[in-house]
């Protein structure tokens, strides 16, 4: 869509917003051309949209493997460099190795799950973005792109299904 406009439609409630999504589908707007912005999470099935993709689980799993490797290195690798002889215990202790490996695995899992949220969501981002503060007060917004020539048709169609306002999306400092 070379000559397109971003519009932001704001709704008071979930019902008209879901109708608006259906309307946008009817008018040829595809799922990847719109985004729903809300004050609480709604699963895709509630909105009638495909579920959003996330890489957080994969990143977290990678973190778990990384943490486990580090734990194994600490408990089974470093004694080769710094052998410590404790009465009656092996230099490479298996039972206590499990403790250190467990802690490092969990730290890796959760640490990278946390970082994954940043990476996948593009946080932190302090540049101006399309948003209206009313969203955190419970309104639901649909941000979508449409052909500039059809802008008024979209405004009329969404107003009819209950949009409180439909206007060109303005990037603003959050």
């Amino acid at each position: 869509m070379s000559d397109s406009t971003m519009l932001l439609a704001v709704f008071d409630d979930l019902e008209p917003a879901t109708h608006a999504i259906d309307k946008l589908h009817e008018m040829g707007v595809e799922d990847h051309q719109m985004n729903v912005i809300s004050g609480i999470p709604f699963p895709g099935r509630v909105l009638g949209r495909p579920s959003a993709l996330t890489n957080v689980s994969r990143i977290a799993m990678f973190g778990a493997l990384l943490g486990m490797s580090l734990g194994i290195f600490l408990i089974y690798g470093t004694p080769a460099l710094y052998p410590l002889h404790v009465g009656g215990q092996p230099v490479f202790p298996v039972p206590m190795g499990l403790i250190i490996t467990f802690e490092m695995t969990m730290l890796g899992l959760m640490g990278l799950a946390f970082i994954g949220v940043f990476v996948d969501s593009g946080f932190p981002s302090y540049t101006p973005m399309e948003y209206v503060p009313e969203i955190s007060d419970g309104k639901i917004a649909i941000l979508f792109s449409c052909p500039s020539a059809d802008q008024m048709n979209f405004v009329d169609a969404l107003t009819k299904v209950g949009a409180e306002s439909v206007a060109p999306a303005e990037a603003r400092q959050l």
Partner: peptide, 24 residues
């Protein structure tokens, strides 16, 4: 951090919170 409440942001947040809830 620039959070707006887009579908992707919520999905990432809820997924991470679920991982934390089980793992912690």
């Amino acid at each position: 951090l620039g959070f707006r409440g887009t579908e992707g942001e919520w999905k990432n947040l809820v997924t991470a919170m679920n991982i934390f809830a089980f793992a912690i």
